[in-house]
C-alpha cells in the first residue's frame, strides 16, 4: 500500500470519518444521556445525534446579508477536515498511517484549527452575539492551551522525541500521571463543557459562535465537534494509558478509557455552574500554571 493510499484510508475510513463519526455520535449520545440521567430525566434516544445531523443536512442554508459567502461556507469544511486529519495521525491500533518524526507538532497545530474556525465563524457572521462568542473562545483558548500543550510537551520531553509512536513506548512513570492530570484539567474547556462553557453559553449569548449558521454548514460544525470529542478522548487514551502488546485489546482499552473520561467530565459539567471569563482565565493561569510547572519539573527530576 502506497503512502498516499494509507493517508486516504486513515482520513476517510479508519480512524477517520467513516468510523469516527458514528463513534462521535455514540460519545455525544452518551454525554447527553448521562447529563439527562444525572438530572433525573429520561434523555435522548440512541440515534439522536445522528438524527440531528441528518436533519440539518436536509435543511436550507440561510446566509446573512453582507457576509463573505466563501469564508462563511469554507469554515465548517476546514474545521471538519482539520479534525479528521488530526485523528488520522493519532496512532490508534490499525491506523495505516506511518509515524512521522514531529507528527505531534502537526497534531497540535491541526487541533488548533477548529478553534480558529470557531473564532472566525463568530467574526465572519457579523452577529453581535457571534462576535462575543468568538472573543470568549479566543481568550479562553489562550488560557486552556497552557496545561493542554504542557501535558503533551512534557510527554515528548520524557520520550525525547516529537513522534507519537515514541510517546507510546515511554516506560510508565510518575510523569504519565502528572501529565494526565494536567491534560484532564484542560479537557472541560477544550470540550466547551460546563464550568468553562463560556464561549457556547447557550442562554447567555443565545448560542455559540455558529449562531448564524444553519443547514448543512451547521451540520458540518456539529460533525466536526463530534469528531473532536473522539479525538480528545482517544488522544488522552493513546498517550496516557499504558499499551498492551495486543492491538485489539489496546483498542478496547482505549475506547473504554475514552468513555470513562467523558463520564468524569460530564459529571463535572452537571455538578457545576458556568464561570465568568475572568474566573476561568485566572483558574487556568494559576492552577493550570502550577500543574504545568510541576509536570515540567517532574520531567527534569527523573
Amino acid at each position: 500500500m502506497s503512502a498516499v493510499w494509507s493517508y486516504l484510508v486513515a482520513i476517510a475510513v479508519w480512524p477517520g470519518l467513516l468510523f469516527a463519526a458514528p463513534l462521535g455520535w455514540l460519545e455525544l449520545w452518551f454525554m447527553r444521556k448521562l447529563v439527562a440521567r444525572l438530572q433525573g430525566r429520561q434523555g435522548p434516544p440512541f440515534f439522536q445525534p445522528f438524527f440531528d445531523v441528518m436533519k440539518l443536512l436536509g435543511k436550507e442554508t440561510v446566509i446573512p446579508k453582507g457576509v463573505n459567502r466563501g469564508i462563511f461556507l469554507a469554515l465548517p469544511l476546514v474545521s471538519l477536515a482539520a479534525v479528521t486529519a488530526a485523528l488520522a495521525i493519532v496512532p490508534l491500533p490499525g491506523n495505516p498511517v506511518p509515524s512521522l518524526p514531529g507528527d505531534i507538532v502537526l497534531l497540535l497545530y491541526l487541533m488548533e484549527v477548529p478553534v480558529l474556525c470557531e473564532v472566525l465563524a463568530g467574526y465572519v457572521s457579523r452577529s453581535i452575539y457571534g462576535q462575543v462568542a468568538a472573543m470568549r473562545e479566543a481568550i479562553l483558548s489562550l488560557a486552556y492551551n497552557l496545561p493542554f500543550l504542557v501535558a503533551i510537551i512534557a510527554m515528548a520531553q520524557v520520550a525525547g522525541s516529537f513522534q507519537m509512536r515514541a510517546l507510546q513506548e515511554v516506560p510508565y512513570g510518575p510523569v504519565h500521571l502528572l501529565a494526565a492530570l494536567t491534560f484532564l484539567l484542560a479537557l472541560p474547556a477544550r470540550m466547551k463543557l460546563n464550568p468553562f462553557s463560556i464561549a457556547n453559553a447557550e442562554h447567555e449569548i443565545i448560542a455559540d459562535s455558529h449562531i448564524e449558521y444553519s443547514g448543512p454548514p451547521l451540520a458540518l460544525f456539529k460533525l466536526s465537534h463530534a469528531i473532536e470529542v473522539v479525538l480528545l478522548t482517544e488522544l488522552f487514551a493513546v498517550v496516557f494509558i499504558p499499551a498492551t502488546p495486543w492491538p485489539p485489546v489496546n483498542l478496547v482499552v482505549y475506547l473504554v478509557a475514552g468513555i470513562l473520561v467523558l463520564g468524569g467530565v460530564t459529571l463535572l459539567a452537571t455538578a457545576t455552574a458556568r464561570l465568568r471569563l475572568t474566573q476561568a482565565f485566572r483558574f487556568y493561569w494559576i492552577w493550570g500554571g502550577i500543574a504545568s510547572a510541576i509536570t515540567m519539573a517532574a520531567t527534569l527530576v527523573r
Binding site: 448521562l34 439527562a36 440521567r37 444525572l38 438530572q39 433525573g40 430525566r41
Partner: peptide, 8 residues
C-alpha cells in the same frame, strides 16, 4: 438521580 429511575 443516577441511581434512581428517571422521573420522566
Amino acid at each position: 438521580n443516577l441511581l434512581r429511575p428517571s422521573r420522566t
